[in-house]
Design a protein around this nucleic acid. Sequence first.
DNA 1: CAGCATCCCCACTGATACTG
DNA 2: CAGTATCAGTGGGGATGCTG
Lengths: 122, 122
Amino acid sequence: MGAKRKLDYDCPIRDVLDRVGDAWTVLTILELSKGPCRFNALKRVIDGISQRMLAVTLRNLERDGLVIRRVLPSAPPHVEYSLTARGLSLHQAIGTLNEWAVDHQPGIRADRLRYDQRPALV
Amino acid sequence: MGAKRKLDYDCPIRDVLDRVGDAWTVLTILELSKGPCRFNALKRVIDGISQRMLAVTLRNLERDGLVIRRVLPSAPPHVEYSLTARGLSLHQAIGTLNEWAVDHQPGIRADRLRYDQRPALV
DNA sequence: CAGCATCCCCACTGATACTG
DNA sequence: CAGTATCAGTGGGGATGCTG
């Protein structure tokens, strides 16, 4: 099988993980949690994201009902993205994970170093 | 850049997500949360995982201090894996996300269907 | 039983160019 | 501004075979 198995799992946790596992998705949600934002504004603020991946990410979020896409009727087309209630609740859930990450990152980093630097014994 | 940017982020959340984003990792933690387990036992119970990915996953978890690897001194080598305190705490954090997943999966599935079946207008 | 080494395919991503 | 279409490359991960 390929790089990522995109079967539609019945398992809910895998379902979420398929979305949350993508770093762009999380970063996008994080940005949008601060308030509605336009396409290029997001592109500017999400460091390193390509136009393509932002488009793909937003489309997926919209499909899952996590983000709303609003087209403002103006001469140069303006499109505003914002989190739905569901998106906001996901942001909360991610927040828990984020706290865990912040709490444990130092210890993890330390352990990684020790693991990597230990002699290659059997 | 490649498929996945494996820079070592300073951002803690990306750090966690690089680990948690992998479905195998989560499934493995889920299994080990039930108690210590041997290699092939894990392989049997984690549906669809290959030997290679289980080995890689366990090594990463061990490296991050989330899992302990104990070699039991027996004639055919027995290796037992179990969660550390840190691994257990990650399991808790994932639990939050899991609850979210269970709560919202029906709605998400429904929205996906609507999104996919709507006429391809502009 | 536990797990590393090798090969190889293809899904995902970034780059680039074009449109409404 | 806000995208879509196309193309090419990278590396994740399955399959297989071997070792302690």
